[in-house]
Amino acid sequence: MTTPFLRYSCVAAMAALLAACSSTPVNKSSKYYLDDGPMKGITQEMVDTLPEPVPRREPLHKGAARPYEVLGRKYMPMTRLEPFRQRGLGSWYGTRYHGKKGSIGEPYDMLQLTAAHPILPLPSYARVTNLENGKSVVVRLNDRGPFLHDRIIDLSYAAAMRLGYAKRGSAKLEVELLLP
């Protein structure tokens, strides 16, 4: 047999729990991971006029060369520029990270031709080719990631648009480190 106080306490706890849940909006209609969608108003013509970065020798960021662990997986970054080629699934990141500092302290700009890679030296440059349509772009690697779904690289939104897969979210890519 329950007392009125116990019933009131249970009702109050349920109300508090429901109120807490309703105060955290979840956009179930978004097709982007964590609502990390594109920037509105950006056209293909705008992206196609962006100049590709020109590979040049830059001092490698010491902090980005240390081994690290994310989501239980260990990564051993490369500490020097040397030939590297990789094929696999690539993705892109957008508005959720726009303006936030990346692994080497530079703010992410989704409208520049940049990328994140888990082990390539930072900063460095790579040619990324969409194996599904043959398009390629040179990007400056200045961040770490991706860390989910066995992706090999995360491109900026502009780079993904240039390669023709921004609307799909991912594509089969080839990454080749460029040596200056």
Rank of each mutant, 00 (worst) to 15 (best):
E58P: 01
A12P: 02
T95W: 13
L131V: 11
T3A: 04
R140W: 00
M161E: 11
E69K: 15
R127H: 04
Y97D: 14
A20N: 01
A158R: 11
A16M: 07
G169E: 09
R66F: 07
N27K: 11
E58G: 02
A15E: 06
M78F: 12
P25W: 07
A20Q: 00
K167R: 12
K74Q: 15
P118D: 03
R127M: 03
G102F: 04
P121Y: 03
R151G: 07
T2E: 07
R56N: 06
R168I: 11
L122F: 01
L50A: 04
T129F: 08
L113Q: 01
T49N: 11
L163C: 13
A19S: 14
D109W: 01
S136A: 09
P51H: 01
R140M: 00
L173W: 12
L148R: 13
A20W: 00
T79S: 13
L177K: 01
L163Q: 12
P121S: 02
K40L: 15
V47P: 10
R127A: 01
R66Y: 06
L111A: 08
A15W: 04
R57P: 02
T95V: 15
A64I: 03
G72I: 09
E106F: 05
P4T: 04
A64M: 04
P77S: 06
I153A: 06
P51G: 00
T49L: 09
A166G: 09
